[in-house]
Design a protein around this nucleic acid. Structure first.
Length: 337
DNA sequence: TAGATTTGACCGTA
DNA sequence: TACGGTCAAATCTA
């Protein structure tokens, strides 16, 4: 994929890369020490990372991406196996739904912006995305070895939320190891308008990122280097798939863990609404988040603070580690290296 | 008993 | 007409 290098894009990439490098250099400190000074340093570093990501993603968002980029095959780090590449890939998709016409018509009638109404994600944790879903159907799909499950927002009847998703387990490749977690393709349709998830804000952010065109970041080895340095990892409150990570872990496993860990954050405590949105509801307004600050530090930090509070109440849950993982993994996994 | 899940039937689209 | 998506009655479960 040829990516036109505009000054804004270069600046964005540089911002992300610098913060990323600094976190990487300091992460042993973040992981293994807990004195107050170091916590302050961790706060500072993470705050800087958030600010950089805010700038970078805001710039990326503002840039109109050529449609061709969306259909281009993902470019991955040579450090990943084919399976890992496939597992890590989160791709966006536009249209292509038979019944999409009705939902598209509803979106247009509602005056929504021209963002895609469906997008696809590959994950090992298809049921842990922070939203509450009700299963309404299951179908055997031609050519698929597993059935496809259909979900809609639990609050559809209450709020009219039109969000749906279907989950399709991917066939295991020939080289798959028995212990490899199954990979699911999750196809989301329509944005949540219910605001009933306490992690709706974070998911909106992830959703926005997923809807961005692929961006080429300049440091292919970093992500998998960090992923593999991180073993063994500290225990987590949330039953991700086990209480500790496997000795040899993949980026996708980390990403899956982060998703679930974030779930713990947001449900452990109600995060305050960012100042840029309504102050009376924990719901982050989709439109204000989208129109104002794209990935705002002041949106993340209240959740971080809430998570820290939850952590001290629940035990030695490592907030910094989890947030750092979120930054390094979840915020980057949607990009093409 | 209410809410969630299952499952066969139905419907719209290509 | 085949296929995928949704409906809704039956069933399950906490």
């Amino acid at each position: 994929m040829a990516c036109a290098a505009t000054p804004d894009r270069e600046r964005a990439v540089k911002e992300v890369a610098q913060a990323y490098e600094r976190i990487k250099m300091q992460h042993p400190l973040l992981l293994h020490h807990r004195c107050s000074g170091e916590q302050q340093l961790a706060h500072s570093l993470l705050g800087e990372a958030l600010r950089a990501l805010n700038v970078a993603l805001s710039v990326m968002k503002q840039q109109q991406q050529p449609a061709a980029a969306l259909s281009a095959p993902p470019l991955m780090s040579p450090g990943f196996s084919d399976d890992s590449k496939a597992t890590m890939a989160t791709i966006t998709a536009r249209g292509g739904k038979r019944r999409g016409s009705s939902s598209s018509a509803m979106e247009e009638a509602a005056g929504k912006r021209s963002s895609p109404s469906s997008w696809v994600s590959l994950t090992t944790v298809p049921y842990e995305d922070g939203y509450e879903w009700r299963k309404y159907g299951e179908k055997r799909i031609n050519g698929a070895s597993h059935t496809r499950s259909y979900f809609r927002c639990t609050y559809r009847d209450d709020t009219g939320c039109q969000a749906t998703k279907h989950v399709q387990q991917q066939p295991q490749g020939d080289g798959a190891i028995c212990s490899d977690p199954p990979v699911f393709q999750v196809t989301y349709n329509n944005r949540h308008t219910c605001c009933n998830s306490r992690s709706a804000a974070m998911n909106d952010v992830k959703q926005e990122v997923a809807e961005q065109a692929p961006v080429v970041l300049p440091m292919p080895p970093l992500v998998d280097a960090i992923a593999f340095e991180r073993t063994p990892l500290p225990c987590h409150q949330e039953p991700v798939s086990s209480s500790s990570f496997p000795t040899t872990t993949s980026m996708q496993q980390l990403c899956g863990a982060v998703l679930t860990t974030e779930h713990y954050y947001c449900h452990g405590e109600t995060a305050a609404a960012p100042s840029s949105t309504t102050a009376t509801s924990p719901c982050i307004s989709v439109d204000s988040t989208y129109d104002d600050e794209y990935f705002a530090g002041d949106m993340m930090m209240p959740q971080m603070a809430a998570a820290e509070k939850a952590s001290s109440a629940a035990g030695d849950h490592d907030v910094f580690y989890d947030l750092e993982l979120f930054l390094l993994c979840d915020s980057f996994k949607d990009y093409k290296y």
